[in-house]
Design a protein around this nucleic acid. Structure first.
Length: 315
RNA sequence: CGCGGGAUAGAGCAAUUGGCAGCUCGCGAGGCCCAUAACCUCGAGGUUACAGGUUCAAGUCCUGUUCCCGCAA
């Protein structure tokens, strides 16, 4: 174990990246600079909002770059300045954009990516969600040296973690960020000192996962088992969430839990039993709905829902 | 001014072509019961978001304001 500090530039955008950066900073590893996505208009009012990583960087008085397109001419100056920093590492986590190779190579020891799966499993944009969709019992964090192919580089370190039944994408990302942060602190000094060998991935075993789309959250009760729906609920929390349409109106299912198996339930039909609001997939596996929301309405508890919408519920 | 939905009792929702503002739950009092979140009886609780307009009459139609929500990004 080598405790020597290292210098780095941090590339990241969303909360997962912010959490990792926060851990590095807490352990006295301040980045030379932060590279993050541009502020963007968010929400109904289209309010311009800074990405979480930028907010943290500003608070810590760390220089921030926000490059809309790394292939544009605007990126030229940035490239020169980046090289001038002469960092030991580029650390990349959830940056949100493909980074051209020359940027990755602009640090002494190269670029390290924090990826939320046990590579070569789940290369791509949604490793955590995909692990939950597949009802995996275990996942983890991988540190890899980035090369020109997506999530393809040699592995510096991995650490696995058990997936709890109560885990969803948010909770898993939180856990993985912490693991990833400390793994960086432990691993990078050793690698910089030449005491750690990067190991190529077993490329034949690679699996891939793509970007999640809003429509992925649409539930077809005839097509999916109760367990599959529950997996989607966990994977798509908080975005895009799971939902379907009744009479053309979107109904969001905000909180649910696996319940007993009841064979004579019609898939997708609401029932009340023992004070619980139940709905089942195509295999009779029921889900207890705890919180839901009509389009245009406030979120309501199952109890409130039952009061107001008796017409869609079988007793 | 990106598109759309909404605001009615503490909560969730109704209210037909404009015509006495209701339902379920909760709340209060009483009853039944070994007992109860169960059951029965009675009751309280509303300026229908706000301001203006049309009308004999507005929760309902028109105009403006505020707040909330879904979509999109």
């Amino acid at each position: 174990m080598n405790n020597q500090a290292f210098s780095y530039v941090f590339w990241g955008t969303e909360k997962f990246a912010k959490d990792i950066l926060e851990i590095l900073i807490k352990n006295n590893l301040h980045p030379l600079a932060v590279v993050t996505a541009p502020d963007k208009a968010v929400g109904r009012k289209q309010i311009i909002q800074a990405p979480p990583v930028k907010e943290l960087a500003l608070k810590e008085n760390i220089p921030v770059w926000q490059i809309a397109d790394l292939k544009s001419s605007e990126a030229e100056n940035f490239y020169d300045e980046l090289r001038a920093l002469n960092a030991d590492f580029q650390i990349v986590a959830q940056y949100g954009q493909i980074i051209p190779t020359r940027f990755l190579q602009s640090a002494r020891f190269g670029a390290v990516n924090v990826h939320g799966s046990l590579l070569p499993k789940y290369r791509g944009a949604s490793p955590v969600q995909t692990a939950l969709l597949n009802n995996d019992k275990e996942t983890g964090v991988s540190l890899i040296l980035m090369d020109e192919k997506m999530d393809h580089g040699d592995i510096l370190a991995t650490q696995s973690i058990k997936i709890e039944i109560s885990d969803n994408t948010t909770s898993l990302l939180d856990k993985l960020a912490i693991i990833g942060g400390y793994l960086l602190i432990k691993t990078l000094p050793d690698f910089a000192a030449g005491e750690l060998e990067a190991i190529p991935q077993n490329h034949q075993d690679a699996t891939f996962c793509g970007l999640i789309k809003k429509e992925d959250g649409l539930i077809d009760w005839q097509e999916l088992s109760g367990q599959e729906i529950f997996n989607r609920f966990r994977a798509y929390y908080p975005w895009p969430g799971i939902y379907y349409f009744i009479d053309g109106k979107r109904l969001l299912l905000l909180d649910l839990d696996l319940n007993e198996k009841i064979s004579n339930f019609t898939p997708g039909q609401f029932y009340t039993k023992n004070g619980k609001l139940l709905i089942s997939g195509n295999d009779g596996q029921t889900l207890e709905i705890k919180k839901l929301q009509w389009e245009g309405k406030n979120p309501v508890s199952a109890e409130e829902f039952v009061r107001g919408y008796k017409n869609v519920i079988e007793q």
